[in-house]
Amino acid sequence: MSTKTTIPDFRVTPSIDQVGIEERVARFTTRSIKKESKMQGMKMVLSMIDLTTLEGKDTEGKVQQMCYKAAHLHDVIPGLPTVAAVCVYPSMVKTAKEALKGTGVKVASVSTAFPSGQSTHEIKIADTKFAVDNGADEIDMVISRGEFLKGNYNFVFDEIASIKEACGKARLKVIFETGELSTLDNIRKVSDIAMYAGADFIKTSTGKISPAATMPVTLVMLEAIRDYYYATGRMVGMKPAGGISTSKLALQYLIMVNETLGADWLSNEWFRFGASSLANDVLMQIAKQNTGVYQSSDYFSKD
């Protein structure tokens, strides 16, 4: 950064009123998205997806199949984008990287002892470096929620900063696991910590804990991004992950992005959906829009 940024006192981050946040969210969800704006929105959604498989039973074969889907969402319909990235475990990065060669789809890897983050500093650094060395374009780290809830904000800050360093050129997404942080005040606080520590993206959830991403949580994070942008001039991306599986809900998220951060964030450089089943629902809606009839999932590939 060219200018020196003053790091704020994280004990006094702005307060959040939950009811007010929910009322604001309700306004987004009453927006009516029709016709060409709906089509435009749905294509944006597709292009923002981090197609994800994060399971113990993942194999190279499974990852290869998903990668093909990532680059060929539904070839029957011309003009569709690819997804933004696939998101896999570090051990699968190499496979994904090869499978996606030449497609423009990026490879993101979770790291830092995902999903719990309960490991040593050395292992988390090694985990990250392994993924980066295998070609990961993006790293999705998890924070140490226990340390955060203990009030050990410096620990959380330093850990993010050191992982950022280990990332090298890879972009760092910081996962908060908001479902474990309880309050919106905490979510605002951890957003500020992560951004000042160097996060390129902030991300809600691992997908392993319920609730995963919600609109209120995402709105708090978007507002934190906005305030940080005004304070520093640096853009930070947003990735809600888990729980967004319908086209309608995804479009409501985009409305929220559009009305909170504006046009600059409406691209997959700055906004992502972490999702595994969202793509097909969007594809069905696009097909419905094109054909005028409601669709069956039998006509859309599952990988």
């Binding site: 998205i33 029709k34 929105g41 504006g262 409406l266």
Partner: peptide
């Protein structure tokens, strides 16, 4: 310039 741009990328069709 640090400024947010609204209503620039995605206009909602009349509903």
């Amino acid at each position: 310039e640090v400024k947010l741009k609204f209503n620039a990328a995605w206009d909602l069709a009349p509903a």
